[in-house]
Design a binder for these strands. Structure first.
Lengths: 354, 354
DNA sequence: CTGAAAGCGCTTACAG
DNA sequence: CTGAAAGCGCTTACAG
């Protein structure tokens, strides 16, 4: 529509001259702040339109001190959970006029440090971080708060200084085990995804993220409440990968006796377990019951449908953004949120065979 | 490590003063350009470190004219295909020192226009866009090229003016139908995902994106090559949603006679078809053969495993970034890429019952 | 309600 | 190899 093929991109002064006003006035009309008469505003907007003017947000940010940009540092954007959460982050932020810079860390603390640094250098107004370590958090405290407001996502760290939005993973895991027990399962295996693992093992790696620790503790708590024992050979910590999870599940299911149910701590672990059951000829829901974390789109379609612990994905991302925006507006604000997960029971869980 | 609790963030002049050099020299040492002696550089870096200096990339960008930021405008970041592609975009870009601003459009042309505008205002160095329309592309040409280099992702538009990275969806679809025919299927249904639909219908909506058009044309081409007829009642265009796809598939499978195979054009359509088959008691691979697009993590685990058309996801995003970076470096460069998809045959396809 | 001037924090020519 | 000055394109006080 607007003026075609200008040699050079129009800037504020061009608009101002064409509208016969000062730059200050043009800026006020364009930026929608300060006072201008309707007539002046119209003149300026018309001029801007004719020149196909695009404000330079860099210059605007430099002067105003705000970039309207939020940095998101996430372990793995391709993971089905984070990926939905990021979608809701983008949606919520965009409604408030903010854009999102997304960086990926693959749970590597060095990449996380670098990511936070880059985002601070780009002067984001706030930071949403999925921290890859509970202890190595200097870069989140020294460089982060209070200079740049920050909200942790999905995991807390060993510090009271940083707000977070998480799920009650302890309780989620605990309730899953209790449910399994309620239908008769006393032999329950655990397939746990840990980012730092390569391959799979029966001992918990030293450095696991908060979420993993909570899920394992929750299961253990349930075991002890119920008077059950966790068996080492029924528990495996696996790299986050379907193939490897499958091998880990085969290992668990080859134990004698084998567990009659498995709790799988994410989508990859659940798929690995399902795959292993298929391989071993175990009928899911009869020979082996399975509960997974996160209600992926395929979970309810699977044959049989997979029981899952459903976290409030959309609210989760939205809540992180809202909290962050409040902190941006009020730098003293301190608040965290813990969401409750929901157990969705489907046919992948049945009573154990007698 | 560095100086704790400075009242104010250090800036270039603080570093320069502490190192007893001019701002220009400090900038050169810090930015790694121009000439400085090793001794000077060390002094400056030490000072920067002590002051916990973080360069202001806004100021740097303003002066240098580069933001080291790429804008990505995508239909749906939560879609499993785009989501993996975005991951590879982030990885490839980050290796070259670029960050990614991601905006979501849900295939809404107005949101796309706004997204492109915002990104240009933020002065991204280049744009990767999944265009939601083949014809409404003014915002990609007038505002986009040649001012800001742009690469289309996954879809082309009706203009020679814009470079793209796509898959040969026509051929992918054609080869899937030919394969089905080769094992005996002459009655083949089509379940097509279209963003603009609400519910499902048997006529192709007017405005469908390039990818959809190619996939449908490819299937039609195969039909006519093989002397088969596409039947309207075996073809449905569905909103991109598992539930709705399921209803659409039920509709297709309720026709008499019903098709013995269905080609589903994305993950949601495939899940809907699988779900419908389950509901109708059809044994997949026997009563009904299915081929889907995109090799989601669950596809090979499903019971039976789903045959899919696999697109080169990781290369795809990487190629878009590489092409864009070349265009950023050389504004005259014109190049596009078309990748070949691969048919992965699994047990969801079998010979039709006699 | 509008304008002239200063300044956000850097980098880029230009001298030396 | 280093420095003094100008300037990137806006917005923010300050006057009027």
């Amino acid at each position: 529509m607007a003026g075609a093929m200008n040699k050079k991109a129009a800037k504020l002064i061009d608009v101002a001259q064409r509208a016969n006003v000062s730059r200050a006035t043009a800026a006020r009309a364009l930026g929608g702040y300060g006072l201008v008469t309707d007539a002046t505003r119209d003149k300026v907007l018309a001029a801007a339109n004719e020149l196909n003017y695009r404000v330079n947000e860099l210059a605007r940010s430099m002067r105003s001190g705000r970039t309207l940009t939020i940095g998101v540092v996430v372990a793995d954007i391709a993971n089905s959970f984070f990926n939905s959460v990021i979608r809701s982050i983008i949606e919520t932020a965009s409604k408030a006029g903010y854009q999102i810079l997304v960086l990926n860390t693959d749970d590597d603390i060095e990449r996380e440090r670098k990511a936070v640094r880059v985002l601070i250098e780009k002067r984001v107004d706030g930071l949403i971080v999925v921290p890859s370590s509970q202890d190595e958090i200097d870069h989140l405290i020294t460089s982060g708060e209070p200079d740049v407001p920050i909200v942790l996502l999905d995991r807390t760290v060993n510090s009271e200084a940083i707000d977070f939005v998480v799920t009650d993973d302890f309780e989620a895991s605990r309730s899953a085990i209790c449910y399994l027990a309620s239908v008769g399962h006393i032999d329950v295996g655990l397939l746990v995804s840990v980012a730092t693992a390569s391959g799979h093992t029966d001992v918990m790696p030293k450095h696991v993220v908060w979420t993993v620790r909570e899920r394992v503790s929750g299961a253990m708590a349930a075991f002890s409440e119920l008077g059950l024992k966790a068996r080492k050979r029924w528990t495996r910590y696996s790299q986050c990968n379907v193939e490897i999870a499958r091998n880990a599940a085969i290992k668990i299911l080859s134990a004698k006796p084998r567990p009659t149910a498995i709790l799988a701590t994410n989508e990859e672990m659940a798929l690995g377990t399902l795959s292993a059951a298929g391989k071993l000829g175990l009928v899911i829901g009869e020979d082996l019951s399975i509960i997974g974390f996160d209600d992926a789109p395929w979970a309810s379609v699977f044959n049989p449908p997979l029981s899952v612990i459903r976290r409030p994905v959309a609210e989760f991302g939205g809540a992180a953004v809202e909290l962050l925006l409040e902190k941006i507006a009020d730098s003293g604000l301190r608040r965290s949120r813990k969401f409750t997960a929901e157990l969705v029971v489907r046919a992948s869980v049945g009573a154990p065979r007698a």
